[in-house]
Nucleic acid binder design. Sequence first.
DNA 1: TTCCCTCATAACCAACGTTT
DNA 2: AAACGTTGGTTATGAGGGAA
Length: 303
Amino acid sequence: MNLKSMQSDLTTESFLILRNSFFGKGQKPRPYRLRDKRNTQDDPLDEYICRLLSDQFPADVDCLKAPGPLITPDLVVLRPEVCKKATRVNLTSSLTHIVAIEVKKLERTRSGTIARPSGMDYNTTPPCGTVRVYDSRGSALDIRGFYLFVCQETVPRQSGKYQLSSLVLCDGNLLNEDFNYYLSIVGERGKQIGLGTYGNGADRTRPMLIFSNPLSAPQLDQNVTLIHSRNDLDKEASQLRKVGAIKRTIQQGGTRAFYSYRLADDVPKDYEQFELLDPFRLPARTEKTQPRGRFRLNFQPAD
DNA sequence: TTCCCTCATAACCAACGTTT
DNA sequence: AAACGTTGGTTATGAGGGAA
């Protein structure tokens, strides 16, 4: 175990592995094959990504896939020997020790833009920069969470082959940093029971969450980008070049800043860094829902 | 131990509304 | 009228817990 690997940021290392696995020179997508998706809970891409990371990380780093469906996060990357000696508090913040990765796959619309630009489904797990996993005794262990957004497309005229056209690995805090909110959804909730005339109805009151889709930013689409809270990652990893900053306005006031990096080889010489404030699209929302699926008849009653 | 029920998952489909 | 954007709704499945 050399000193460099002891100290390196696992998200930087993961990003570099993914960049070089899914793309070649000049960011040209490398086609890959996936096994069949056997059901809706099955994710061959997650497995493939886990395999790539496991194979290419040095021996002191593990990449673990969620051991079954319905388990979140999708992947955990860690240095097990270092983690065993670390304190709980340390593990909650140290990206050299352990990090969770949630994979989000998106399609491209026929017009060539990323699907769901104004916000994508996170289903019943809100995004968060801190996520909860459990140690071998079953005790909660809160660790940093990152999100891998990819646009996967089929390779034209090559059935069964895929390629990525966009990739973003970002700090979950870019999407949300309210861990108490995360716990309120992921932990025990309530449901409504005793509903309806006969009292035998129930309402799961199950959340269906929508949060930002980073690939909706044109600066990030059709690119391969790491988004991190540190502004000096290019000093630590010489393969990285900083390409811009993203600031988000906090509801209660203030802003958070994140920094974007790409493989230095992917950045044109005359590239000018972007400086974005609240770049993710937000539709004008109302609290009212839209009625859907009305069955309309072709007559109207006499009165 | 076996059976049965509940729940969360992934991300798309398509209805509806708005703009061109 | 067509294109685009938004958003409510949907699917089958298997882990896990409680009941039998």
